[in-house]
Simulated assay, not measured.
Amino acid sequence: MPRLLASDDLLAQLADLPDWRLEDDRLVRAVERPDFAAGLALVVAVGEEAEAMNHHPDVDLRSTRVRFALWTHVANGVTQYDVELAHRIDDLL
């Protein structure tokens, strides 16, 4: 099972993810896209990355706004998998 990141480790890694925040023991980021189709395309692209990692985010798509929440269910918190997926999402943006 993946291990939870210690608070200090997580805060240090968040320095490289300035658009992400901790919310309810999850890494969270919301982005605006120009239209619904662009938001949906982003969700599909993130889904492909998530499948490749076998690590799946919670996604909420509402009109032009996409919200990602990352946490490792089996560890009940944020692990290195979540940090890696956050970086991959940032790369897609």
Score class of each variant (00 low, 15 high):
P18M: 14
F36T: 03
A38N: 01
L11C: 08
A69W: 12
D58H: 01
V31H: 05
F36C: 03
E32A: 09
E23M: 06
T79L: 08
V31D: 11
A12N: 12
H73Y: 07
D82I: 00
L17K: 14
R33Y: 10
E49I: 04
G39K: 00
D60K: 05
L11T: 03
F36Q: 04
A41I: 02
Q13R: 15
L27R: 01
A38I: 02
P18W: 07
E32Y: 04
G39D: 00
Y81V: 01
R21K: 12
V44M: 07
E48T: 10
V31F: 01
H73S: 07
V46H: 06
F36P: 02
L17W: 08
H73G: 07
E48K: 09
P18E: 12
V43F: 03
A75W: 07
A37K: 02
A37H: 01
A12F: 07
A30G: 15
P34Y: 00
M53H: 06
D24W: 08
T64M: 01
F68L: 03
W71S: 15
L11I: 07
A50V: 05
E51K: 11
D16L: 11
A37F: 03
F68V: 02
G39F: 00
T64W: 00
A52R: 14
E32L: 12
T64V: 03
E32G: 10
F68S: 09
A75F: 09
N54Y: 02
H55I: 03
L14F: 10
T79D: 11
L17T: 13
V74Q: 14
G47F: 02
P57G: 03
L70Q: 03
V59Q: 15
V66W: 06
D19P: 08
T72E: 06
H56R: 12
D58L: 01
D82E: 04
L61I: 12
A45L: 10
R65V: 14
V74I: 11
A69L: 12
D82T: 00
R65N: 11
A15P: 06
A52C: 05
R33I: 05
D60V: 13
T64L: 04
D19C: 12
N76F: 09
